[in-house]
Design a protein around this nucleic acid. Structure first.
Lengths: 333, 333
DNA sequence: TCCGCAAAAGAGAGCGATTGCATTGTCGGC
DNA sequence: GCCGACAATGCAATCGCTCTCTTTTGCGGA
């Protein structure tokens, strides 16, 4: 004699027990103030008694809003998007919106599959970081969901963009290093459009002032701690040792510092290091890491605000939100 | 004259265009081999022509399986669960299952809200790390979803557990340090049940062999790099400086090493350090970090395998999967 | 030529909510 | 005492699919 499988209670069960119609229960759940006080209490105790949990699949189908947003990033570990994701998930969950997480890696196929999956779930918005393929473009344009590209400001965003100019960031790093008198930078660039824009900004500015072009290395994304050994080895093999290393993330910068110190060099005296992202470690490392602060949490909040305002199939109120960036000079450069 | 809002195509549209019934299209999508070759082709081009994207809200409602699993962890940054999440998201997405991410922090309320949200979406499974409150217990038991507690092996899991014995891990660390001749360990413990079990395992073993109890510090979760300064300062203030610091994560261990080196100490000669989790940085730090390897990816895969086998409302085939752990001796201790 | 069977396709009843519209109840003003 | 206004609630169609049960089709064997 096994216990009978008790089916999960539905709106009907609650309505029956409270002696009202399902419509009223539905109203109570979505808009409590429109039902009379006494009714509200009966419903609310019926919900407690039955242990009712609304079925958002059904609700979403009927109302054609899913209260769900997709967040698509390349990686989770050593990712400069971490603050953005953390804030995003926290604030959305608090507001009753579910976050669907997708990791695109660097694969276009995976990206497309994830977008399709998101659209299948009829998400209210898609937060995206990465290159937009024509297929993605096509799928996204016909959907009512708001498409938000973050951490970048493309010229012609599909929906809206919340980010900053990577080109300008690269340029400002170059200016900063010049102002500090550095002469031979080494630039480490990860694959990917954003990293390349920073690189371009840096190199253009650097050369425009008559300097020799910097030496360069590349790494696979993400720019993580683990790449530091190889990068540092490459640097040491250079005919002329650079006096500053420009990294694509604070994690990589941290790694380079560790390697330099282990090799007996002083940072920044013998070799300086610049990071990117102003991750929590930047201010805690010894030496503390000079970095470019990007307000990842604000990116998240701006995106969320836009989602709140958004009406299906409508273009967003503003197409670009520039959150800027700020160079934080610390000990490492 | 604004363009008319084209409503997104439905199964009916596809069926009409392909000249078949919606049932057949549905079959084609979920089980392509049961429809005749020619029909399949007509349907498939109708799908392409209309740009049809299935509505999983409707599908899930009808079939009462959502193809969605919830993953609930405390934090994203410096988290020892990162490998588990990464693997989980990658493999599930590849199999067409969506991952809903929730960050519980250390708040019971948030945890409960997230569980409720997950159940609202009728997820097929919930991957959970953290303490189970009575409320959570009650909600989860009545639901058809599989509840999987990971990174731990509770005595009486609600659904199933995939993890290892933290008590044994603490014990083994103690044995290892004794075998290496260390005499005065300092233990840094984070809040939380798992960290405390490791601590207990360590302290019991340590004292059972006649040693003095170790000195201790505590940190807020997560055990991150940023806590290192304070911890190291505390250590230096101790009447007797410890000869080894036992940390709750590799990130914290890394931080302690950085602090020690900055203070002019040698690691491990003057002070040794042990981490936990064998994160990617452990093998890359200078010195490399002695740590406890836990196969986070395997935890993910075991959990996924269980989800595949699971039938709603049925108890899981096995209640515990012990993935074990392995102490990896490196340079730092 | 006809029958039996398996394979393929269709019909239609749900799944559990939301929501526009209709109905009922209450109350104040005249 | 009646009417209009408004608040509270109910009715029932609808959302887009799945899936069981039937019906149709195609084909080989007698």
């Amino acid at each position: 004699m096994s216990a009978p499988i008790e089916k999960t209670p539905t709106l009907d069960d609650v309505a029956l027990m409270a002696g009202v119609s399902t419509a009223t229960v539905s109203r109570f759940i979505n808009n409590p103030e429109v039902v009379a006080k006494g009714t509200a209490e009966r419903i609310s105790s019926a919900i407690a008694a039955t242990g009712y949990i609304p079925n958002l699949l059904a609700g979403g189908l009927a109302s054609s809003k899913s209260k769900m947003v997709a967040v698509l990033i390349p990686y989770l570990t050593d990712s400069i998007f971490n603050d953005t994701i953390q804030t995003m998930v926290e604030e959305l969950s608090a507001a009753g919106t579910t976050v669907m997480l997708g990791l695109t890696g660097v694969s276009e196929k995976r990206t497309e599959d994830l977008i399709r999956a998101a659209l299948s779930r009829r998400v209210d918005a898609i937060i995206f970081t990465g290159p937009v393929t024509p297929q993605v473009d096509a799928m996204v344009r016909r959907s009512p969901a708001l498409f938000i590209q973050v951490w970048d400001l493309p010229e012609d965003p599909i929906g809206m963009a919340v980010g900053f100019s990577h080109h300008a960031a690269g340029r400002d790093i170059a200016r900063f290093l010049m102002s500090r008198g550095y002469r031979r930078p080494h630039v480490v660039t990860a694959e990917g459009a954003r990293a390349n824009m920073r690189r371009a900004g840096f190199v253009e500015e650097w050369q425009s002032t008559g300097h020799e072009p910097p030496s360069e290395s590349t790494v696979k994304v993400p720019s993580s701690f683990g790449h530091a050994r190889r990068i540092f080895a490459e640097i040491r093999r250079l005919p002329e040792t650079p006096d500053v290393v420009v990294c694509g993330s604070d994690y990589l910068a941290q790694g380079v510092i560790v390697e330099a110190l282990a090799a007996g060099l002083r940072v920044p005296e013998d070799i300086a290091v610049v990071g990117f992202g102003n991750s929590s470690i930047a201010g805690e490392m010894r030496p503390t890491i000079t970095s470019v602060e990007v307000d990842g949490a604000r990116i998240a909040r701006e995106a969320i605000a836009a989602i709140r305002k958004h009406r299906p199939h409508q273009p967003p109120a503003e197409r670009w939100v520039d959150v800027g960036f700020r160079l934080v000079a610390r000990e490492s450069a």
